[in-house]
């Protein structure tokens, strides 16, 4: 074999796969993500004078948590070289199972939350097996399983209903020593990630996503690592589901599905390359917050409601385009 030397152009014409490859390579630098966050906060403060009021802060953080959790989960799968388009459906399924088991009683909560977490683990395991054992493309496989999970959700809870105990919903809106509980939840998720980062399995996830063949030759259990990534992601989907239940106080069999694509956007804005192996979840957390604040800004900027969705989309594209500017990208090795 004579591997093509780096720096030579392929004689074959540019293909779609090639451009997808380029897209997957895009990686925002940490500086760019933080800069975006600062700008977004500044603009939001300028447009919303009561941004720092207790209610505004609490409600903002409460809004962030579900997206933050799912974005962290997505990051882990993306780092492993995959993608999980079923995370939103997992959120839905975990939330309806939890709300059904809780049935409005505080006493049922521990069991229900455990079961909800179990749902995330099971969904992740299922995804992992489908991707690894059946060797399906992650993007296709998880797209397919998303229908399985949302279908199951509809079986568990055919129509909106069920209630969470008021202690659960009001506790979520409370503050501890002036710090909103939702903010504490975000910090806890971040701490969870930082702990995870120091775990051997996460190192293996980076290795597999960065160069699966090298990882295999280096005795990394590649298949098991991939599956684990989906399982961990499923657990974060469950956390996202709990936050949603705290937000809504009730179950809804369609609730999480739209979070999926936002989670991917948060991952990219947060500086994790979709090709895997580079980045981290702290960036995705900031990315999720940026995305949520952007829709606030569009609202407070009095963009006519007809144009609001367009404006929202444009801002996200702008953020992704910024990611494409070489100067803002993380320096790639030679």
């Amino acid at each position: 074999m004579n591997p093509a030397p780096p720096g030579t152009r392929e004689p074959a014409p540019a293909t779609l796969a090639h451009w997808w490859g380029r897209l997957r390579d895009i990686q925002v630098s940490g500086t760019a993500t933080v800069a975006m966050l600062v700008v977004v906060i500044a603009v939001n403060v300028a447009l919303q004078p009561n941004f720092f009021d207790q209610y505004a802060l609490t409600s903002n953080f409460a809004t962030f948590v579900p997206l933050v959790a799912i974005a962290v989960g997505q990051t882990i799968v993306v780092l492993s070289g995959g993608i999980d388009l079923s995370l939103g459906a997992q959120v839905t399924l975990a939330s309806v199972v939890t709300v059904q088991l809780t049935d409005g009683e505080l006493g049922n909560l521990p069991l229900a939350l455990t079961a909800g977490l179990g749902v995330g683990v099971a969904c992740g395991l299922f995804n992992g097996l489908v991707v690894v054992v059946a060797r399906l493309q992650p993007i296709v496989a998880t797209f397919a399983t998303s229908f399985v999970f949302s279908g199951l959700a509809l079986v568990v809870l055919p129509r909106p209903g069920g209630t969470m105990p008021s202690e659960f919903t009001s506790g979520y809106r409370d503050s501890v020593l002036g710090v909103p509980v939702a903010l504490l939840a975000i910090l806890a998720i971040a701490a969870g990630w930082l702990l995870l980062r120091r775990h051997r399995v996460t190192r293996h996830i980076y290795a597999v996503g960065g160069n699966a063949e090298a990882a295999f030759a280096s005795l990394v259990p590649v298949a098991r690592t991939r599956i684990t990534a989906y399982v961990i992601a499923g657990m974060f989907a469950s956390v996202s589901a709990f936050a949603i239940l705290a937000n809504t106080g009730a179950g809804d069999p369609f609730i999480g599905n739209e979070l999926t694509l936002t989670s991917v956007a948060a991952v990219v804005i947060g500086g994790t390359a979709l090709r895997g192996g580079r980045g981290g979840a702290i960036g995705s957390i900031l990315g999720a917050i940026i995305l949520a604040l952007v829709s606030n800004i569009v609202f407070f900027a009095d963009v006519p409601s007809t144009y609001r969705q367009l404006a929202n989309g444009l801002v996200v594209i702008l953020a992704l385009a910024l990611a494409g500017i070489p100067a803002l990208q993380k320096r790639r090795s030679a």
Binding site: R159, G162, T169, R173, N247, T248, G249, A250, D252, I255
Partner: peptide
Amino acid sequence: SETALDAVFQ
């Protein structure tokens, strides 16, 4: 949603 906005209505 019939139920899931209850908390925010609160």
